[in-house]
Amino acid sequence: MKTKWWLIALLVCLAVASLSPLASSSPDGLERVAEDKGFIDTGQEAPFQVIADYVFPGIANETLATILAGLIGTFVLFGVAYGVAWLLTLRRRELAK
C-alpha cells in the first residue's frame, strides 16, 4: 500500500516541532517594538493557563516540556483543521451518495 503523502508531511511537521527548543530566545518583532517604545507593560496575562508559553506544565526538564508542547500543538492543529475541512465537505459527500 502506498503511504499517504500527508502522513509523511505530518511526520515532518512533528520533526519541526521537536526542534523548538533550538528557537531563538530573543524577543520577537512585536515584543521588541513594545519594549523599545515603552508599551510592553500594558500587556495583560491570560486569565487562565493551559500550556502557557509553549512549556508543558509540571515537567522539570524545560527542553522536554517544550518539545511535548510542540508535539501536542502540532497534533491538535492537524486534527482541528482536518476535522473542520472534513465537516465542510460532509454536505457534498452526503449529496454524492
Binding site: 515532518v12 511537521c13 512533528l14 516541532a17 510542540g70 502540532t74 497534533f75 492543529l77 492537524f78
Partner: peptide, 9 residues
Amino acid sequence: GVLAAFIFA
C-alpha cells in the same frame, strides 16, 4: 490539516 500543523510547528 498539514498546513495548520506545519504553521503551528
